[in-house]
Design a protein around this nucleic acid. Structure first.
Lengths: 359, 359
DNA sequence: GGCGAAATGAGGGACGTACCTCAAAAACGC
DNA sequence: GCGTTTTTGAGGTACGTCCCTCATTTCGCC
């Protein structure tokens, strides 16, 4: 049998109350007694039973996740994964609430954030571009004791408690090596597309990409970023025109959104398998394009992992516990057609089916 | 407040006992009543509190992990990750026991497995090559109600309950694309090394590799596998000789172990950065070789994830619960120098430090 | 309508920990 | 050695679920 607090008490020759005081670092215990208890713990190999502890604490974790209301497949997938992870974690006293804010309205976002304390939350995860207003709002949250975690895109100057996502500079570098090595030694031009509301990420990716291209592939000419904010319509036109008039372009690096418009152009111009196309984020559409050969390689992050990590980190921060760095690190994944992970058969929402749970 | 079983009982107009019977699929409840309870559950959004349930069940999970006693860095790392995950999971009533067996002795392995039941285990995870004796031993375990999970290398004909690891054929294909695209259009020869106790994995990787090479890179000549069972010494000699006499060899695909010997040869012959070298498993040594340019790309699996997945799967199987396919899928990761994950500062074994846990 | 069987209710004791109170004992300062 | 403060003990309740027993009610059937 596993040792319990009672065993510790007996072993240390103290009462249960004292063991409890030591375990929960409550005041009023002599140094010497603390040592005796810790010795007993070590000797018996006691490990606090978290299931019992959490039950006794009857602690609930209501967490807010704040995402832009973009209709992009990436944000959609992320929201879905978070909802999924949340429904699983509900069994462990988690209560995840998704909030959306108008993507281009930092004031609305700040207002939303300010409204969060006093609604029973014990943590906030947030995906948003960094602005001065946001910075203040986050400081406000943290001043009220709410841990704030940055999602996907870091908010380094806001004092956020943690960042969950990949290193975008390294992701850009990775895109660079793939582009360079896949294109081979022959001289060529590379088109870079950047369209996103997360300007910081684009800049970092671009920096990483250029770093590698300049150092390792001097034969390749990287064109200036095409920043086509706005509709896929615009992007489609601009890219089509450019590809038609620049025969030297043999590679395309899509740093941000708009993969759908891009692959459409590639398909229409019959350039499938002829260009080296590297983009980010394995959304359903990108997946399809990868299989069809319109995209060569994808730099991505595992959204399921990211979602589960978010919950774990929020919880750890709420309890002021340390993190398992290895587990929470979001890897930069490279996906080719050949290592495309099989799509798990998405069961039609297996939420509460208590009758099945013991079947 | 979260709804509890009492709330369900009140809402459904039945007693607590009946709710309990429905929740745990115990007999003796009318169809109509079951429906009433389920309706109440749905209406109130009840989610069974797992922490309380596990406590009440006072279920303990003693699991056996069986690994070959190889001194290879891969098995070492795997063992370390498992031990780590185990020590974390101890807080959730898990008790992981590592066992080793003489790598080349299937009889010893079978004897070990046969001794497991009756020692309080409720599950077994196993990394071993498939043999007829092993097949029988596994059947025996399962007949006694012990779920068996294959680790790293699948045991498809043994009736194991689950396989935790990557698809080796797809991994081979991935290695193939990288090799082909990195080498470029110029004709070249590719050396393939296979040395391992897990013959099945080698065969599958080779098959995937050839598949891609034949289909997509006809200009590349893939040499027959060099199967150098035994010491790194032998491998070093054979490879050194081959590389010296075959100037057409521009790529090396190392399917199995022995990366240390290989990189040593490459380093000694001054071939760093000159060959395209693709291998498997990101062990500490491979990591170093990748940084040094002796290895170009690594196909790997996240051992931390694999270890945690093992525990989750064992537990789910022990409780006869369904798995989250998405979470348990082990991805085929591609690691280049540029996306090498940062080494988490390996704290010197942060085991039981109860005094800190609430700090 | 009465019988046996099936379904339901009422209640309680676990599981291991957290957290509270109040009294008793020990240590401390002078 | 006194009084005061600090430390410790004893005991209890609570958390939400599981699982058990025994009585009681309801149902199906002839």
């Amino acid at each position: 049998m596993r040792p319990t607090v009672n065993d510790i008490a007996r072993e240390a020759g103290v009462s249960l109350a004292t063991v409890d005081r030591v375990l929960n670092t409550r005041p009023g215990v002599r140094e010497k007694t603390i040592r005796a208890v810790n010795d007993a713990i070590l000797k018996l190999g006691y490990v606090r039973d978290l299931t019992a502890a959490n039950l006794a604490r009857s602690r609930n974790y209501r967490m807010a996740v704040v995402l832009p209301d973009t209709e992009s497949q990436f944000v959609q997938s992320l929201a879905a994964e978070l909802a999924d992870a949340g429904s699983v974690a509900a069994a462990a006293r988690m209560d995840l609430r998704l909030h959306r804010f108008p993507a281009e309205d930092p004031h609305a976002l700040a207002a939303l954030l300010t409204s969060l304390p006093g609604r029973g939350y014990s943590g906030v995860a947030l995906m948003a571009p960094e602005t001065p207003i946001l910075r203040d709002a986050i400081r406000g949250l943290r001043a009220k004791g709410l841990p704030v975690v940055a999602l996907v895109s870091d908010l380094p100057n806001t004092g956020r408690d943690h960042f969950i996502g990949t290193d975008n500079r390294a992701a850009g570098r990775t895109a660079g090596v793939l582009m360079g090595r896949f294109l081979g030694p022959a001289p060529a031009q590379v088109l870079v597309l950047g369209q996103s509301l997360l300007a910081r990420d684009m800049i970092e990716r671009r920096r990483g990409f250029d770093e590698v291209m300049l150092r390792d592939f001097p034969g390749l000419e990287v064109l200036p970023s095409l920043e086509t904010h706005g509709s896929g319509q615009t992007l489609r036109q601009v890219v089509a025109e450019l590809l038609a008039n620049a025969p030297g372009v043999r590679g395309v690096y899509a740093m941000g959104d708009g993969q759908r418009a891009l692959t459409q152009v590639i398909d229409e111009m019959g350039l499938s398998e002829k260009l080296v196309v590297v983009c980010h984020e394995l959304t359903p559409h990108v997946r399809q394009a990868l299989e069809a050969g319109e995209i060569t390689a994808v730099i991505t992050q595992n959204l399921g992992h990211l979602a589960r990590s978010t919950l774990r980190v929020l919880r750890a921060k709420a309890d002021n516990l340390p993190l398992d760095a290895g587990q929470e690190q979001i890897r930069i994944e490279i996906v080719l057609r050949e290592n495309l992970p099989a799509l798990p058969d998405s069961d039609p929402y297996p939420l509460a089916e208590p009758a099945d749970s013991a079947a």
